[in-house]
């Protein structure tokens, strides 16, 4: 006989899976907008090792000359993205689930253990818990980043009506850079998140859909 244990509440699972297409649409439409003035790069002086983005990237995704369309998608789905995020945060506050997510004083030490363990530098077994230290830091950071996207987005969308906010962020051009960097952050998060999910295996993934995790007796 196996045991099943509740892991993720239904609300959290819905927020998570609804966020996925919403954020994807925001990133995609954001690219349609960014293409129109794609000036960001990593480089110094006349050296540009990387330009956001190479032509092949645009070609592969069909991005180009679709600024107005990108803005239209962006300014509709921003409401849904924000609403879903706000609902998620309110839910974690009122359900008490924030306790599993917000880092505390042992989190950093745990997170270092997790990283060492994942890099095979430490053989010490990890304590069994809902979210480990690395997850706590990652999942809390992503919420802070989401808030950052809303704030920088407002500063770009209405830089006169929210002029104080725009100034606080270092001005209109700076707010655009910050908005862009947060998006790059989501993509990096996604890559790490996806690989960790694959490594963690089916039982862990299934829990994010069904809500329960199967535990073999004796565990």
């Amino acid at each position: 006989m196996k045991q099943i244990e509740s892991k993720h509440p239904a609300a959290i699972r819905w927020f998570h899976w609804i966020n996925f297409p919403l954020l994807s649409i925001m990133i995609w439409s954001g690219l349609l907008i960014y293409w129109a003035n794609d000036v960001y790069k990593i480089g110094w002086g006349n050296t540009t090792p990387f330009h956001f983005f190479p032509q092949g990237f645009y070609d592969a995704l069909g991005i180009g000359s679709r600024l107005s369309e990108g803005m239209a998608w962006h300014f509709l789905f921003m409401w849904l993205f924000a609403l879903n995020g706000v609902c998620y945060v309110l839910y974690t506050i009122f359900s008490g689930d924030w306790r599993y997510l917000v880092p505390n004083r042992t989190t950093l030490r745990e997170a270092i253990q997790v990283v060492l363990h994942d890099l095979h530098l430490s053989k010490a077994p990890l304590p069994r818990q809902k979210f480990n230290g690395a997850q706590k830091i990652a999942y809390s950071s992503i919420i802070v980043m989401g808030f950052g996207s809303l704030v920088t987005g407002l500063a770009i969308w209405k830089p006169v009506q929210f002029g104080g906010l725009t100034a606080m962020l270092g001005g209109y051009a700076a707010a655009r850079v910050e908005h862009f960097l947060l998006t790059i952050g989501y993509v990096l998060f996604f890559v790490i998140h996806l690989s960790q999910v694959i490594l963690a295996g089916w039982n862990n993934f299934r829990a994010m859909v069904t809500g329960f995790e199967v535990v073999n007796e004796g565990d």
Partner: peptide, 11 residues
């Protein structure tokens, strides 16, 4: 909570 394989598959 105990569950059979069948129950797990169904859920």
């Amino acid at each position: 909570m105990k569950a059979t394989d069948q129950e797990i598959s169904r859920r």
